[in-house]
Design a protein around this nucleic acid. Structure first.
Lengths: 345, 345
DNA sequence: TTGAAAGCGCTACCAT
DNA sequence: ATGGTAGCGCTTTCAA
């Protein structure tokens, strides 16, 4: 009897069944570790499968089981379709999500939503490529997400939490974080603080709220304009360049994101203004760059890694049928150099 | 006749067929835009599908067509299983890959290979979750990749290119890049240059080759040790801390990656040594951080975005049956502050 | 131009 | 403990 083990291709359960002289039902059970199969039989089948290099076909399995063991990560960039996905905040988040999703035994399916049609959410759901969806950032898509969440439960969104929203979010306490940042600037003597960022985006609107509360609560602080800049480095640079040459006097900047803050600093320096001596700058996010730029950026830290872990955990629980609440993480002001004074640690 | 369009669920082609009063074969053809279906019939079917919010079930389609319209991105971390996927280089690469893969109409399936079994590659292939595989970095897995590439063609690897390898790589000219960096240090008067990095990894071995050639070609340059540090920030910091206190005199460091370089700078500064005055440091990669840290890092630039685009393009061509050759991109020395002298631009 | 039917590879029900 | 069979939703012959 010739050895054929290496010449007989073992691609399907039917192949294994043929070699083992059993039915494919038994092979399926054996490979699933079912106690229904006789021990010796099971071991023999598993051995044949392994020696033949058999790996289960997940497409067929998924079709049968109506699930995918995959989570989708969607990144809507409606506010800024030209914003590259290489944006540091998104990319750091993506890395941690990949880490955690893999650790939980799932695959990660990444989808960038470039020029949001209003049906991207529906398509993502209906295509059945994943068991659940994580959306990074609400962008301009709050209504779409809200509508989908009514009928689609396995959905978790990174972003701002509003009283009037039914979907599950994970995010930082934007209002408190922004307020702490601006209050710190005020405490350092700044009186003319400009807000850079577009309050049309939910998270940024919350940061703007925090900014306004800090200003309203202080005395002697002048009302200053809000500059609704886009989120890209180039756009933010240009916004600041234009503002700095407008003749409006100012001594502080609260930027809605670190990318805006860093670009603003470049523009200020280019305009001959010193940071922090002439203008103090505070950002938001604490991306990896923030600690290493010059001057090191004072910013509001969001714990991206913990956020990623929470989102995956909540999503898996929702897939299991649980109805999880939203989670808000505390924001932490990280004082470095760009605000002009280090706070005692 | 009651309007039922909103109450009848339209989940499958069979549903549409029932509503339209045709067979599901016709629905399939109509939705695929087949010329075989009568025009008015086709339009009617498409209308029903759209109004019912129908989206094709990709799992079923994939099973039938034996393809997935998905590309796998595998990140083997065998050399450093504790290395987080949040490593800047990998994460930047991931962002650009997501960008380009989405742009090409594919999905991206991300898989971190944590503690490499020797069959991870085989499993990834046999599970049929994707039409092709991009591997980011050879790590310690050269043999595994080489073996798989014999029979599995839709495979592109980021990393070092060796004369003796049959798989398709995209990468930077590591030897030339390293050589330029070290020659630059030598030209600036450095004579005792230490290499930090583990030459067991293919790319780093090539960078080490470049380092050695630059040293061999110069006169008066002393032979210095190679410190086979790991790739994480913490490990590199510790390696440099230990080395700096060993009593060995040195005035230059060529770090195999920017992460190592930046950690080394922190350790050197902590040990009371000035960078670049006492020790000049050059890195490799030009991650986003490099330009923004203090002192700004002199490094060898790899064009990550272009690399990502090339990998996707080559992979899609391989999926289409083409046998593409490897591609090597030119390395570019980016002179900033950490080497102690700016070259004329 | 359309429909019937087979089948992609798997799992689970129902027998025995 | 095991096998037969149906069917997940789709595409594509083959017939008409």
């Amino acid at each position: 009897m010739k050895k054929r083990s290496s010449t007989t291709p073992v691609k399907t359960m039917a192949d294994i069944a043929r070699i083992a002289g059993v039915s494919s039902s038994t092979v399926s059970r054996a490979l699933a570790g079912s106690a229904l199969v006789e021990d010796s039989q099971r071991d023999r089948i598993i051995k044949i499968a392994r020696e033949g290099g058999y790996v289960i076909n997940s497409t067929a399995r998924n079709l049968r089981l109506q699930r995918t063991e995959t989570l989708s990560v969607a990144i809507p960039l409606g506010h800024e379709s030209s914003q590259p996905l290489s944006d540091p905040f998104f990319v750091e988040m993506l890395g941690y999500l990949a880490e955690e999703i893999t650790r939980r035994g799932y695959g990660m399916f990444v989808q960038k939503i470039s020029s949001p049609m209003d049906d991207w959410m529906y398509r993502l759901i209906a295509a059945h490529r994943s068991d659940g969806i994580i959306v990074i950032g609400q962008s301009t898509e709050h209504e779409v997400i809200e509508a989908a969440s009514v009928s689609y439960k396995p959905l978790v969104v990174w972003g701002g939490h509003d009283r009037q929203q039914s979907y599950c979010t994970v995010g930082t306490d934007n209002v408190a974080g922004a307020r702490a940042a601006v209050s710190h600037l005020i405490a350092l003597g700044r009186r003319k603080i400009v807000f850079f960022g577009d309050p049309k985006l939910p998270e940024i609107r919350l940061r703007h709220d925090g900014y306004q509360r800090a200003v309203a609560q202080a005395s002697q602080v002048e009302a200053m304009p809000t500059v609704p800049t886009h989120l890209t480095a180039d756009a933010a640079y240009e916004s600041m360049r234009a503002f700095a040459s407008s003749g409006i006097a100012f001594d502080g900047v609260f930027a809605a994101t670190d990318v805006i803050a860093m670009s603003a600093i470049r523009a200020l320096t280019g305009a001959g203004l010193r940071v922090p001596e002439d203008v103090a700058v505070v950002g938001f996010d604490d991306i990896a760059l923030a600690a290493h730029c010059n001057p090191a950026l004072t910013t509001v830290r969001q714990d991206i890694q913990r956020g990623a872990e929470m989102m995956v955990d909540l999503l898996l629980r929702r897939i299991a049928g649980e109805d999880t609440p939203s989670a808000t993480m505390a924001a932490e002001l990280v004082v470095r150099e760009s605000c002009g004074a280090a706070r005692a640690s």
